[in-house]
Design a protein around this nucleic acid. Structure first.
Lengths: 146, 146
DNA sequence: GCTTGCCTCTACAGTCGCTGTAGACTGTAT
DNA sequence: ATACAGTCTACAGCGACTGTAGAGGCAAGC
């Protein structure tokens, strides 16, 4: 039960030191104890909580969703359906994004395959970007960062 | 050849007014003429250039890549391979991202399907996020925003 | 005890690609 | 003449961090 410094927590949970302090600042991690000299001190529960956050981030959950999940975790007697709802919403998001990216892939593939070399002036890739209207998926939704 | 205001350019190219000014500020759109009262004035060439930028953004190209593409576009006698390289790099990025998202989808699906209802305390979804190690794709790369 | 060298602290700026706000001015339609 | 939409500049904010600066802390080797 001996407390660990932020660096140990960082390597235990595989989350960067700066990120841990950031999580604290946005209320995702709660204010830890401090040593006499002011250093943050953590215990095993913090490793688990931080790992949970990391796993959830890796699954693409937003910070808000993660906050909700943590809130639910602290009330184990509540109905599980709230958790299920969050996960299902996330799955839908991922599937939507997948569909977008698949359309993009088809389009880029077509562009690259049509390239016959030569000069920029007659470049098929350039033409494809210019004359986007020919494309199957003309109406891209606003694309989130790749 | 009568010049148009930023609002007309905005609807012609389907890019928001504020975004056009932003593009100007980062050097993507060049400084336009101004009317006597200081309003920006654009011509048809600007519509094409801005549409090109929009199409490229919809295809997920970064601003840097788009700057490169525009630079190449103004030199139609250069070899086309530089364009092809940028597009291929973009395709690879998209494919990498697709693979990540597919792994995510499998994992989320598994989580959601395992949910049998009940209380949060015994929730399979929670368990799955906690015990990420069981998953096929334990080693997710840093996930970019959904 | 002293130095070395890493660890930790706070506070703030920067990233990307915009979006939103405030407050003033301009142009057009009625 | 008035109303109202459009435009102007300048700056702050978004999410989820990352990077920097400058100061202080801590354990190990000499």
């Amino acid at each position: 039960m001996k407390p660990m410094t932020i660096g140990r927590l960082s390597s235990a949970a595989k989350v960067k030191v700066t990120t841990i302090r950031y999580y604290e600042s946005i209320g995702l991690m709660g204010t830890p104890e401090r040593s006499a000299s002011g250093q943050r001190l953590y215990g095993n529960a913090d490793v688990e909580r931080l790992s949970f956050v990391r796993h959830a981030r890796e699954l693409g959950f937003s910070m808000d969703a993660i906050k909700d999940l943590i809130g639910l975790q602290t009330e184990p007697d509540q109905d599980c359906s709230a958790v299920d709802t969050i996960a299902q919403r996330q799955l839908l998001e991922v599937q939507k994004r997948l569909a977008q990216l698949e359309a993009l892939e088809r389009e880029l593939k077509r562009m690259v395959e049509n390239c016959r070399g030569g000069k920029v002036g007659g470049c098929q890739v350039m033409a494809a970007i210019n004359d986007h209207s020919e494309c199957e998926s003309d109406k891209h939704e606003r694309l989130k960062p790749l």
